[in-house]
Structure formats: structure tokens, C-alpha cells
């Protein structure tokens, strides 16, 4: 099994589940607030920032993936989450990250792929 860090697994019945628009991880908004996004905190800075959480995560997602071994899993590779923390991910997340994040990604030379499967190549 991979030794990647594990994200907080939200309680099964929890409401207020939100998915990160950038990495598609699913957490409760409380977790986003307390620890931020385990994968993209560096760029999104969600921790303690409710406005940012609202802008960069969404409750509008479809499909839940329990990513147990991201390194070896094909599902993770397909979802492009292979390098991310173990945890719950959404198969599809509606919406795009705010423009400033897109610009930031661009400035770093990272291609932004929306998680809504709107562009497939």
C-alpha cells in the first residue's frame, strides 16, 4: 500500500460534503476549514478561509471514489489523483476554479483540467 498521507475521511452520514475543484477530494466544509485541502492547500489556501472554500470547492459533484492506493490504482491515474493523498474523491466535480487560481496554475506552467469532464483528450 502506498505511504501517501491520508486525508480525513468524512463521516459516512455527513452532510456539507464538498469537493475540491482542483483535486476533487471530498471533505466536509469543516475539514476544509480546519486543515484545508490536503493536496492543493499550497495553491488554494482554503484553511480558515470560508470564502475561499466556497469559491474553490463545491457540493455539486457526482460519484465517490474511495482512493485507497493512489500510487498503483488505475482509477487514481485516470482521475489524475495518483500523487494525491488517500481519501475520498469525486468522480466528477462541477465548476471551475476561480480565475486567479487558473492564472496561478498557468504561471507555474501547470495545465488546468477542470474536473467536470468538459475537456477530454
Amino acid at each position: 500500500m502506498s505511504d501517501a498521507a491520508s486525508a480525513i475521511i468524512p463521516p459516512t452520514k455527513s452532510r456539507n460534503l464538498r469537493a475540491c475543484l482542483l483535486c476533487s477530494i471530498i471533505q466536509t466544509s469543516a475539514d476544509f476549514r480546519s486543515i484545508g485541502c490536503p493536496n492543493c492547500e499550497e495553491i488554494l489556501q482554503l484553511k480558515d478561509n470560508p470564502d475561499r472554500i466556497l469559491a474553490c470547492t463545491t457540493s455539486y459533484f457526482d460519484g465517490m471514489i474511495a482512493l485507497i492506493d493512489p500510487e498503483t490504482s488505475w482509477v487514481a491515474r485516470w482521475q489524475r489523483t495518483a500523487k494525491y493523498a488517500r481519501g475520498m474523491y469525486a468522480a466528477r466535480v462541477k465548476g471551475r476554479v476561480p480565475e486567479d487560481v487558473e492564472a496561478e496554475l498557468d504561471s507555474r506552467g501547470i495545465k488546468y483540467r477542470p474536473r467536470d469532464q468538459s475537456d477530454q483528450d
Binding site: M64, I68, T72, A76
Partner: peptide, 23 residues
């Protein structure tokens, strides 16, 4: 969710789950 949690719980036990993901 349960599968996720189960696999984390059993990770360091004698019988870890060997599934990679579930969705």
C-alpha cells in the same frame, strides 16, 4: 465510505485489504 475506512483501519493489521480503490 465504509470500504475506505475499513482499508485504513486494517492497513497495519495482519490482513490488510488489498483493494486499490472503490467507487
Amino acid at each position: 465510505f465504509s470500504l475506505m475506512r475499513k482499508s485504513l483501519d486494517l492497513e497495519y493489521t495482519a490482513k490488510p485489504l488489498s483493494i486499490l480503490s472503490a467507487f
